[in-house]
Design a binder for these strands. Structure first.
Lengths: 112, 112
DNA sequence: CAGTATCCAGTCAGATACTG
DNA sequence: CAGTATCTGACTGGATACTG
């Protein structure tokens, strides 16, 4: 998403929210918070998403420098993803958000 | 957005993020944090959005019980929007997110 | 003033198949 | 294993005009 000066003037939090929200990004961040994971490992944890979409989400997290990608040479290929320091600094805030959610969303969210 | 059991199991923060992210929601929350505002007043603060979209965002915030809507009888009609207690409890978290953003997004965000 | 009603274009997630 | 390529339908945001 493109940001305008007006956004930043008003609310840097919007920029932050755009970087961390998205269909699967919070879940990816959640899983990576326990440590580095390989692509397929991550993919298996979130089985409902296609590889293509998974990649897109990871690329966007990389572009936002929240996640870093490491390629280990060899065959078969091995690529791991891990949180950057910026991503790790986000963790406590996400935990507060989680806590806020748990005390407020009860009875509001649909379960499918 | 519909949530599944898996989302909640993994990450209640995702549910929270879905409720507060969206093209204009953070900006609306930001403006309402200073106090109640009338529809047109709010609309004038965010001039790039159409009334239809503005309404949609407000309705979603209402549905998430973050914002409340008050109709004052009379003519011309007067409707004000204000944060619920749930919305007010979110404010400090958004401020932290704002702070996190300010220390990290520099040089990353495009200005259009 | 505070909305509805239409219509449109662009983006996004997803399914599926293929590759170095 | 870790991707790419292609195609698709659904959803979102937006422009514009109209209304109680």
């Amino acid at each position: 998403m493109r940001h305008t000066y007006h956004d930043i003037e008003c609310c840097a939090a919007k920029v932050a929210l755009d970087q961390i929200s998205g269909k699967w990004k919070p879940i990816i961040l959640f899983h990576l918070s326990s440590g580095p994971m390989r692509f397929t490992e991550l993919w298996r944890e979130i089985p409902r998403v296609s590889k293509k979409v998974m990649l897109e989400q990871l690329r966007q997290l990389e572009a936002a420098t929240l996640v870093e990608r490491t390629v280990h040479n060899g065959f078969p290929p091995e690529v791991t993803y891990h949180l950057s320091s910026k991503g790790r600094e986000l963790a406590p805030i996400l935990q507060q958000l989680e806590q806020w959610a748990l005390t407020h969303i009860e009875g509001v969210v649909q379960i499918s």
